[in-house]
């Protein structure tokens, strides 16, 4: 619709012809006067009824620190490193594919050879250092996709705030542990 088209539109040509881009405006009764005051009164009562309905409807607040909104199963929260359930060995073999896939460059992996006497991981090598800088992580989940052994997955925990930036660098031990506070998970159909 061109600018000139709106300034000289044919809405007021007296023939009642309205072009497609001109919309007839719906107008209420003229404001003011005694009738207006009467309508104000009625509409006020209607509004009072509406707001009272909200009192009856009750509150919808979730008292956050005490109760949490359950997260969806695919919610991408704090990472978890996994171990084999039967042997207890770490799944991570220190391949650094996660670090390569990470767009925020927040994963640091230093691999080392497994000692055959005292194995750490299931593969040849293991991650001697595995650190995720949570202050840089954007929770995109690419590390999870990149991992060939499902060793790293995104968990459900989102309460990661801390007072110190250095405390936000999560080490392998922290990532292997169960999160201290469980985040409620949304059940099927919830």
């Amino acid at each position: 619709m061109s600018r000139t088209g709106t300034t000289s539109h044919p809405a007021s040509d007296g023939l009642g012809l309205l072009s497609d881009d001109v919309v007839a405006v719906q107008r209420g009764p003229e404001p003011g006067g005694l009738a207006g005051a009467y309508r104000i009164f009625g509409e006020t009562l209607r509004g009072l009824k509406t707001t009272f309905g909200q009192v009856v409807a009750g509150t919808t607040t979730v008292e956050y620190p005490e109760e949490k909104v359950p997260v969806y199963p695919r919610f991408r929260g704090r990472h978890r490193l996994h171990t084999f359930e039967d042997t207890g060995l770490e799944k991570c073999v220190g391949c650094s594919l996660c670090a390569a896939a990470c767009p925020a460059d927040c994963i640091r992996v230093v691999a080392a050879e497994n000692d055959p006497e005292d194995r750490v991981s299931g593969g040849e090598r293991y991650a001697a250092v595995y650190e995720i800088n949570m202050s840089r992580c954007i929770f995109c989940g690419y590390c999870e996709i990149a991992c060939p052994f499902d060793a790293i997955t995104m968990g459900h925990d989102f309460e990661l705030a801390d007072y110190n930036r250095s405390d936000l660098i999560f080490t392998k031990e922290m990532l292997l542990q169960e999160p201290p506070v469980r985040t409620p998970l949304r059940r099927e159909g919830e």
Partner: peptide, 11 residues
């Protein structure tokens, strides 16, 4: 006022 706005107000 909180109740009117579906929230508990200061608590």
């Amino acid at each position: 006022l909180g109740r009117f706005q579906n929230r508990p107000g200061p608590n």
